[in-house]
Write a protein that binds this DNA or RNA. Structure first.
Lengths: 151, 151
DNA sequence: ATACTTATTGCAACTTGGTTGCATTTTTGA
DNA sequence: TCAAAAATGCAACCAAGTTGCAATAAGTAT
């Protein structure tokens, strides 16, 4: 009946993890979303459907991220966003509104094209373009044991 | 004597804002920094020199940002970083280590060049490249009164 | 279906990051 | 030097995120 629910079930099965209502709920929200979602948004949408605790949500998101089911999207204002990471949703840039905070997805593009593509056609007022590159620095890559350090 | 202290004084004078020890302290930390700084790092370095409250730090950073003295640097892990925004420090990409969290500055580059430039030469293990574009979406740009909304 | 093992969730408590209102202190400029 | 304006400090608060552990639900073999 609900083909998206089917998708969610298959995803969990393929990942080899337990099919709990909470995980299915989170997955269905991602499958239905058209933009990356913040934690609070997921929380709100989930609350209507399944009983859950915020700790569970953090753990599910962390798990999905490690399994490559979802990917994290960098944003301003220190809020983390996530989006589904399927083949038909490859990595792409996002537009981040500084006022309402909304993230919208943009077509994959090269940086040299970006200014032309976004500014007039997409009807955004572009304030700032930034390239963010993540990975491991030399020190952390060489360390045999990767110890978490936050600053 | 201390030429950086002179720079800091001139910056505040040029911006037309009061020259307080807290602001000078923050500014001097930025002038001496080689990488973008997180709030907790600034807090630590500042604590040794000037009496200050965390609220003051937030207000100073917000003020400096609005005046264009510093700029915000997007990072993973929901931590905000800042760097000095002088003419000889133009906007540039950053490398964000997923393990230790450190942000390091990279030379300005076009996206088409990026993979060649960073991966072998700079000795980083690149995991993810993301373009982050910020500004105002159509709705927020057209709204006469910009009301803050967070989600 | 049942019982058992393992995985997952919920709860409580806590840390950190960030904000607001207001009284106190410091700068500024006459 | 002194009043007005600006900036800081304090207290209290809210939201985000984490940890340990007990309770519960899912998977699995019988």
């Amino acid at each position: 009946m609900d083909e998206k629910h089917e998708d969610a079930l298959l995803t969990l099965q393929h990942a080899g993890i337990a099919k709990t209502p909470q995980r299915l709920g989170v997955l269905n929200i991602f499958l239905a979303a058209k933009t990356p979602l913040s934690l609070s948004t997921i929380k709100k949408r989930l609350a209507a459907k399944v009983r859950f605790d915020k700790v569970t949500l953090y753990r599910i998101l962390s798990l999905f991220k490690n399994l490559g089911i979802i990917r994290e999207v960098t944003s301003r204002n220190g809020v983390n966003y996530f989006e589904i990471a399927t083949k038909d949703n490859p990595v792409h840039p996002h537009f981040n509104c500084l006022n309402c905070g909304m993230l919208t997805c943009m077509e994959p593009l090269t940086f040299s094209q970006s200014r032309q593509l976004i500014s007039p056609k997409e009807d955004y007022h572009v304030d700032h373009i930034e390239i963010s590159i993540t990975g491991l620095c030399a020190g952390c890559r060489d360390a045999t044991k990767l110890q978490k350090r936050k600053n």
